[in-house]
Nucleic acid binder design. Structure first.
Lengths: 206, 206
DNA sequence: CGCCCCCTAAGTGGTTCTACTAAGTGTCGG
DNA sequence: CCGACACTTAGTAGAACCACTTAGGGGGCG
């Protein structure tokens, strides 16, 4: 799904106010950042793909779906793109809901351009780190899916520190059979030793 | 530091308004929760010890130090007690700062009693889980401190999946010497196999 | 039916880990 | 100066792991 994301990050701007979009677009563009504007949440949601690195500047109050709805929908899809909320007249429950939902900031208009740029850079950095971590977890899960049922059982027990003999007893198998599954697990999971297997196994089940 | 914390959790209430303290105290008490009230942040900070399980209901606007200051001070001390902020007239930057600082909620007075109780229970549960995780990390760090410099080097490499022979080469030692350090590490860290060692090693350095 | 995959099991041979014992060096503090 | 501790190395022997190979039974698919 995610793949290489080597491309430059994009700052997505979603605001129904054209003047605001233009102002943000100019500010970000003049800082060398790639910008993509949308006038409403639906447009953004249909355009955005998870593999596009970047962050999101999101207005709260818009005709159609609100910024909070956009956030909920993104999270429901499992997308973790960092969000900075922008609002002219927000209230506290909104701000609480937004930040509890993982928003990196909640800025009230008018905001200081330098402050906004600072936050945007933080978001882009956070996104980059998220993607690197996600990619690892993603490939781990994909490898895990290629294991057979037996291999998964064995992997869990191996990663918990049991010896082949103990695992054999637990599963009612011969130790030799466990050995076979174990080596299959190591190969399929791309682990060259037990320590690495413990590491990738931790990224699988959750 | 933390130890067993087997005692029942306490809900700490910090508010300068006596009527509010009484109301909260009664509400929580009638739900079978232990309550401890303070009229100002300084009083609470001098009383509170990290090993006391519970959560904190914290007013924002108080004479003396503010609720946000109390939060900052607690975090600076490394205390992770869950906090619910209560406020009569908060603004958005406050709410953002509070929730970004890890506050579990930010309630505006007047609030619904059932909602508050619900949040309090969530906080107490979160505190319990935090403490269990902290205890494990704490004991891991204490064991780690009892290792010698050499043993720490060896542990890092062992937990990274290197064999004794490889570690010996990296450190310019005989494989037999590494074996000795390795068994010392296993005993001192309380790990009976490599998988467990990887687990506890992950809790040490950060 | 043949082919492929999975599960099962075993032999052989090599590497690695672990425990027990033993012992030489160096440093630091009483 | 001596004892405690850390660091170093070594012998021995058993246990565990790993790779490569062989092999039978069961199930699904073309």
């Amino acid at each position: 799904m995610s793949s290489v994301h080597s491309s430059a990050p994009t700052v997505f701007v979603v605001d129904d106010d054209e003047a605001m979009r233009d102002a943000l677009s100019q500010l970000l563009d003049s800082s060398g950042l790639k910008v993509e504007c949308h006038a409403d949440g639906t447009s953004f949601l249909s355009e955005y793909r998870e593999d596009r690195p970047g962050c999101l500047l999101l207005d709260i109050a818009m005709p159609g779906i609100s910024g909070l709805d956009v956030q909920s929908e993104l999270r429901a899809r499992g997308h973790r793109i960092p969000i900075i909320f922008l609002t002219g007249h927000g209230d506290i429950p909104m701000a609480v809901k937004a930040t509890r939902g993982g928003a990196l900031d909640f800025l009230e208009k008018p905001f200081r351009p330098d402050h906004l740029l600072d936050r945007v850079r933080q978001c882009l950095l956070a996104d980059r780190e998220n993607r690197e971590a996600d990619d690892k977890a993603q490939s781990a899960r994909e490898r895990y899916k290629r294991l057979t049922a037996r291999e998964r059982e064995v992997m869990t027990l191996v990663a918990s520190g049991f010896t082949n003999k103990e695992i054999a007893q637990k599963l009612g198998l011969s130790p030799r059979t466990v050995e076979v599954h174990r080596t299959h697990v190591m190969h399929k999971m791309g682990a060259s030793n037990l320590a690495e297997l413990v590491g990738v196994a931790a990224l699988c089940s959750p």
